[in-house]
């Protein structure tokens, strides 16, 4: 199979930013995700959530992270020669995400380097910020994306 992608390792440069709009979350979606993956009372039970420190149902942080991943896919990753990820250095849940919130994502390229062991692969450190409709930062994350190189074994400068 000969794949052709829009973005290879060489297309990421430090300082680049991409922004993408995300969904508006309904109470049902928040409760449904949490019922499957994170059924803590303040994610799934309106009455208990009202009595909690959050004063109402809030989305699981893993829900926000999963929605962030989907926004990453929609913004650029599905068009990229992605080879996966080794992980996330840091993820912070800063402000609760509540029913009716509309989120968006901004990706910033922090650093790029070629792999020492894999001449066909490059390593990109990304920062992903998730905002609500008031432009408040609700979640921030830094981590690694691995991408195939357009020109294995060389430091290509072609766009």
């Amino acid at each position: 199979m000969t794949d052709s992608f829009k973005y290879y390792f060489e297309d990421f440069e430090p300082g680049q930013m991409t922004e993408v709009k995300g969904p508006t979350l309904s109470r049902e979606e928040i409760v449904e995700f949490a019922s499957r993956f994170d059924p803590q009372p303040f994610h799934v039970d309106e009455e208990k959530a009202k009595q909690s420190i959050y004063h109402g149902v809030i989305a699981s942080g893993w829900h926000t992270a999963s929605l962030c991943m989907r926004m990453i896919c929609d913004a650029y990753l599905l068009d990229a020669a992605s080879m996966g990820s080794s992980g996330v250095d840091e993820m912070r849940w800063l402000i609760p995400v509540r029913p009716g919130d509309t989120i968006s994502m901004r990706m910033t390229v922090l650093e790029t380097k070629t792999s020492r062991t894999r001449p066909d692969m490059g390593i990109v450190r990304h920062r992903w910020d998730v905002f609500n409709q008031n432009q408040e930062l609700v979640m921030e994350m830094t981590g690694v994306g691995l991408y195939r190189r357009r020109h294995p074994g060389t430091r290509g400068s072609e766009g």
Binding site: R36, F37, E90, M91
Partner: peptide, 30 residues
Amino acid sequence: TATVAMRLMCDGYLNASSCIGSPGIDELKF
């Protein structure tokens, strides 16, 4: 995989605990 861990955590002990949330995660490795 991370959400599977979260669910097993809830079922195992977290939902029987006084947990009031988490500020975040470090060194998440796949």
